[in-house]
């Protein structure tokens, strides 16, 4: 079994972290400037999160959608949920993961690369978020 016991726990951890980031002026502002719709498709457990920085809801710099939806993403990233978890802990090099096939990406990759420096603070936010949720076991 993977890190997350089910999709609900994944949404609570990863989508929850993204929702916190969506209200962070420094990070959220830079992501909003990209005007991208990015979909993350995860396996084990099957789940998906879509980040809409093109037409976000009035509150926040971008909107995070849990589960399937009709948005048309410009970039789709596919990976195992465990890889996503390690990525948000700051333990996965995106470029290496893409080259090795641990992650797959469809769409204009340079737009994603440009966001990487902006999302660095999210790694610490993710760790804090898991601690606040009482998921210390996921940080081991």
């Amino acid at each position: 079994m993977g890190v997350f016991k089910d999709a609900e726990q994944l949404y609570q951890c990863i989508a929850g972290m993204m929702e916190i980031c969506s209200e962070d002026q420094a990070m959220g502002g830079k992501i909003r400037e990209a005007e991208l719709v990015i979909r993350f498709v995860y396996s084990d457990p099957d789940s998906q999160i879509t980040v809409d920085a093109k037409n976000p809801a009035p509150h926040g710099y971008f909107t995070v959608y849990r589960g399937e939806n009709d948005l048309e993403p410009e970039v789709v990233m596919e990976m195992k949920a465990d890889v996503a978890h390690r990525f948000w802990l700051g333990k996965v090099n995106l470029v290496s993961a893409l080259t090795r096939g641990e992650m797959k990406a469809r769409g204009p990759i340079p737009k994603i690369m440009k966001l990487l420096p902006a999302i660095k603070p999210a790694f610490a936010i993710y760790t804090r978020h898991l601690q606040n949720l009482g998921y210390q076991d996921l940080l081991a």
Partner: peptide, 12 residues
């Protein structure tokens, strides 16, 4: 087949 841009990305 299709357009080249359809395959843009890594692992497509």
């Amino acid at each position: 087949g299709g357009n080249l841009r359809d395959y843009e990305g890594f692992g497509q």
